[in-house]
């Protein structure tokens, strides 16, 4: 049996892949891949995440460039939004604007 090779050569930077599946939809995180540069990252991402035509656009970004929230900070970080119910339309009381009988008849 051949000797056990050194696996260190499989390690390239990790890239996060974002895929837009249909025109007009948002780009969504699909997963990650390894690649030595951005051009090959896109090619690898296509081979891994779009073998069945499920993409019209793709972004890749090296994982180390992403800044993310820290779960432990969530309460203080997101809390300020929780008590601002006046940012939702349900907060307001207004009368319902109905059609007149004539308008309704006209539509029928």
């Amino acid at each position: 049996m051949p000797e056990c090779p050194n696996p260190k050569d499989t390690q390239w930077p990790i890239w996060e892949v974002f895929v837009q599946e249909k025109s007009g939809e948002p780009h969504q995180h699909a997963g990650s891949i390894h690649a030595p540069d951005s051009e090959m990252a896109l090619q690898n991402a296509r081979d891994i995440f779009a073998r069945r035509g499920e993409a019209v656009s793709m972004w890749v970004v090296q994982s180390k460039h992403i800044t993310a929230t820290i779960p432990e900070d969530n309460p203080s970080f997101f809390e300020p939004a929780a008590d601002k119910i006046y940012r939702h339309p349900q907060f307001y009381s207004v009368p319902r604007a109905k059609r007149t009988d004539e308008e309704r008849r006209n539509k029928e």
Binding site: C4, P7, T10, I14, I48, R51
Partner: peptide
């Protein structure tokens, strides 16, 4: 080809737990 892709999805899922793919491949080989 799909099986290769599945292997890669999974190695990356494992990497989110703080291991390097090379470590896992090393244990495999």
């Amino acid at each position: 080809q799909d099986e290769a892709g599945h292997g890669l999805y999974l190695y990356c899922a494992a990497e989110t737990l703080g291991v390097d793919r090379s470590e896992l491949v090393g244990e495999f080989l």
